[in-house]
Nucleic acid binder design. Structure first.
Lengths: 326, 326
DNA sequence: TCCTATTTTGGAAACGATTCCATTTTAATA
DNA sequence: TATTAAAATGGAATCGTTTCCAAAATAGGA
């Protein structure tokens, strides 16, 4: 029933070594190669991945650890990771960490059991402590420890641009609404750059920093906006938050963008051909994914790797900011 | 550097068989078990998956083939598949088929190379022909050939309910807008049930069947609605289409739901805690995923399997239909 | 044609686990 | 204590590859 390399060898009248050589980097005589290939086709031979993996100690598989695939940003990211991984002949394990560090840990164990060659992770727990050692790992938006290779969008510039765009559109009083993650990561820079730019531009601003886990988001937003009715521009930590803000503002009978303009972050679309959900600082997700796969491959191949990769963002106006002549 | 079972055996002063027995179904004396476990911990031993797979001929890995993860329906589905798979100790390969049958085929080859134990697929090409034979495969929304095990929502009921809900809300002239896939699948029943129910209820109706691939969707929708201004109720093949319809209607200065009410299908949310996007016939995605994993496991374990699993849908009102007293 | 250099080939060893069988240890019974 | 049954254990064989080395085939040169 099951066809092995021995069957092929016997059928072709050669040794197993020869078949193996045909399969891989072969220096085999043309005529024998033909015989072997005929046998492979005839018997419909499929090399056993496990036997291969056992020798080669390489699986051509990577794992993607994300909080949850069920989110436009992560699903887009996963889409591109899969795309570029496949293009390089690498398969992808999907792991929804779900803020469950046990699950993350289990996946790391998997690496050690050599089921995967490396990991790409967007993680908000302290996973990289385990990894900072010597396992192939690329982090997204996060560089907790020194040796971690990471890829990130230019959050710094994003925060600055957001403020500038709001001012350009006539906002007098802006705010930043963030939270969601408590662990230090690159996204914190959005807030920092926002604050610094506001000071530089001398515009009145405030900041709402929500503690994670966020309970009663709607309530907190409502009381914030009620207490600060002068706010006419919002920079939200991400598009999901922006949507929540918009929902809240509508309930308060403020219209977007006429009364309050909102800029998010990420550039979420719910699928490839859809529109952007809100005006947003768009991350180059495609490029980030590409670079992440590339960097990981470099690590796996033992090459010298650039630790920090920062990719540019841009503002894309949508329905939640006013139109301005450029 | 690399710790094998031999190292553990030597360190613990026992034979390799004993270590293996501790690791698996062990009948081992308590004292030796302790010694071995201590050694395992001390040496930080991780069993090599490939060596295991080679003997066991089982990988505890399944593949999920979907058109694209970058879509709320599929990403939610993938989320639950991963959840239930992980709960059963099964890992998940992600494959965006992207209407690329070569990629699908590559995954089938993978099964044969025993890299995965089975496949769950939402596919619009004819992949299940390859699979229907003897490979573990569960199809979603599709049963092209007889032997295919499949899981689906009750699309039939969905189409019926949609019409009833529109009528209940006062619609006088309804339409179905579909297309997107040309290959026979369970979603066709939405259209059939719509049509039949309209006839039964004696309501004026029309149908817009868009040919795939859909070019100029917006244009086609616009001319359809212009030519049929009396339409006040729309049943869209899925929520994505519903969103496109709504966008189009707004451009035509028709307000939703006052002028035209819209019901979609799927029950899409863009993430776990978000609102539904539109009024919709909600599929029990969670349950569908659960059943899919369960059925696949049954097949892999060689059990007798129910071929057809149909799960109930329900209508969830959103902002795109009028409020009615229930 | 013969001898050497090169290419091609066969097959044993190795990868790291599991499993089975023979052997030893332990427990139970008389 | 002696005898036997049961439980625990060690280790060889096995899974299907790849790799390496020695042997065989071929080519080249005189």
């Amino acid at each position: 029933m099951k066809v092995t390399i021995k069957d092929v060898a016997k059928y072709a009248g050669v040794g197993v070594g020869t078949v193996s050589r045909v399969l891989n980097h072969g220096s085999v005589k043309e005529t024998t190669r033909h015989k072997v290939e005929a046998a492979i086709k005839k018997l419909n031979y499929q090399p056993n991945t496990y036997a291969r993996g056992l020798k080669a100690n390489r699986t051509n598989t990577i794992a993607l650890i994300i909080p949850t695939i069920w989110h436009p940003f992560f699903s887009e990211f996963a889409y591109y990771i899969e795309k570029y991984a496949t293009a390089m002949g690498v398969k992808l394990f999907l792991c929804n960490a779900n803020h469950n560090s046990e699950k993350e840990y289990e996946y790391i164990q998997m690496v050690k059991r050599n089921k995967v060659d490396g990991i790409i992770g967007i993680t908000y727990s302290n996973i990289d402590q385990y990894l900072s050692s010597h396992l192939p790992f690329v982090s997204i938006d996060r560089h907790f420890s020194e040796d971690v290779v990471y890829v990130t969008a230019d959050n710094e510039a994003g925060g600055r641009i957001a403020v500038q765009e709001l001012i350009k559109r006539g906002c007098q009083s802006v705010c930043f609404i963030g939270g969601y993650q408590q662990i230090p990561n690159e996204t914190k820079k959005r807030r920092q750059a926002f604050e610094r730019t506001c000071q530089e531009q001398a515009i009145s601003y405030s900041i709402l920093d929500l503690e994670e886990p966020i309970l009663d988001l709607d309530k907190q937003l409502t009381s914030f906006f009620l207490s600060q009715p002068e706010i006419d521009g919002v920079f939200a930590i991400n598009d999901t938050m922006a949507l929540d803000v918009i929902t809240c503002l509508k309930k308060l009978n403020k219209s977007v963008p006429e009364d309050v303009q909102v800029i998010g972050f990420d550039g979420q679309k719910i699928s490839e051909h859809a529109d952007y959900l809100v005006s947003s600082i768009v991350q180059p997700i495609d490029q980030m994914a590409k670079m992440a796969v590339q960097r990981l491959t470099e690590i796996i191949d033992g090459k010298q790797v650039v630790k920090r990769t920062v990719l540019p963002v841009k503002f894309v106006p949508g329905d939640t900011t006013l139109f301005v002549q450029t």
